[in-house]
Amino acid sequence: MASFSNRIFLLVSLTLMFSGGATRLVTNETGGTRGDFVISPYKTVVQVFNRLNSTSFTIHCKSKDDDMGTHVVGPKGNYQFKFRANFWGTTLFFCGVSCAKGWTAFVVYSIKRDIDRCQTYSMWEVRSDGVYGFRQQDKVCDLRFPFKNKP
């Protein structure tokens, strides 16, 4: 006979399998996790807009498990990808951006930082001095990663 914890694990696994959801840890105001989880049946969209004047940029995003490849984004264009947070609550994507103004590398999505900041939509802009991130709920810029000069 299966133990109680094995039954709970089986129930959660079956729920995730049939709902298509993912588990997300819920963070508290100090940035730590509360130890509970929320089943998320939706994907998160990351979108990076080109706000450079008449210039393209190159972007390469990846996680531990997924490499999104290298893409050139033309003037007034954008690049986007979608994903579901993983079961363990460790989802993290990072990107490198390069253009004539310089380059930068940054975390484009971290479940620990972004669960309340941009749960289903993560918006970014590449500007002449760096990359800017915006909160989903009020579109306020709250993150900035300045360009470093090219060697």
Rank of each mutant, 00 (worst) to 15 (best):
N50L: 01
V140Q: 15
A105C: 10
Q137I: 15
T91Y: 01
S5A: 15
L92M: 15
D36S: 12
I8F: 10
C141M: 15
Q47E: 12
M68L: 15
T33E: 02
K43R: 10
N50R: 03
T70H: 09
F49D: 02
Q136N: 12
F9M: 15
G35H: 02
K62D: 09
S3R: 15
G20P: 05
C61I: 08
R127A: 08
R24D: 05
W103Y: 12
Y121K: 09
C118I: 00
H71Q: 14
T120C: 08
R84I: 04
I59G: 02
S54R: 10
K101T: 04
W124T: 03
C141S: 12
F37Y: 07
R84F: 06
V38P: 00
D36T: 07
K148P: 05
K148R: 13
W124L: 08
D36C: 08
S128Y: 06
D138Y: 09
N50G: 05
G69A: 13
P151E: 07
S98Y: 12
G89T: 04
R34G: 08
A2R: 12
F81R: 02
S122D: 05
F93V: 05
S19D: 11
T33W: 00
P41V: 08
Y42M: 05
G133N: 02
D67V: 10
N6F: 13
A22D: 04
I115P: 00
S56K: 07
R34I: 08
R24N: 04
G20R: 08
D65M: 13
K101D: 07
T91A: 11
G31K: 08
T91G: 04
Y132A: 04
V46F: 02
T33P: 00
F87Y: 14
V131M: 03
T15C: 13
G89D: 07
G20L: 08
N53C: 10
T27H: 05
K150Q: 10
M17E: 12
R34T: 14
T23Y: 03
A85S: 12
D129C: 03
F147Y: 14
T30E: 11
I8N: 05
T23C: 14
A105W: 01
G69F: 11
V73R: 01
A100W: 07
L10H: 14
G21H: 05
V48D: 01
P41W: 02
V26H: 10
L10M: 11
R113K: 11
W88I: 06
Y132S: 04
K101H: 11
M68Q: 14
T15W: 09
G96R: 10
N149F: 13
N149S: 15
D65R: 08
S98W: 05
V126A: 01
N50K: 02
Y109N: 00
G74Q: 10
F87W: 06
F94G: 06
V45F: 03
S13G: 14
R127W: 07
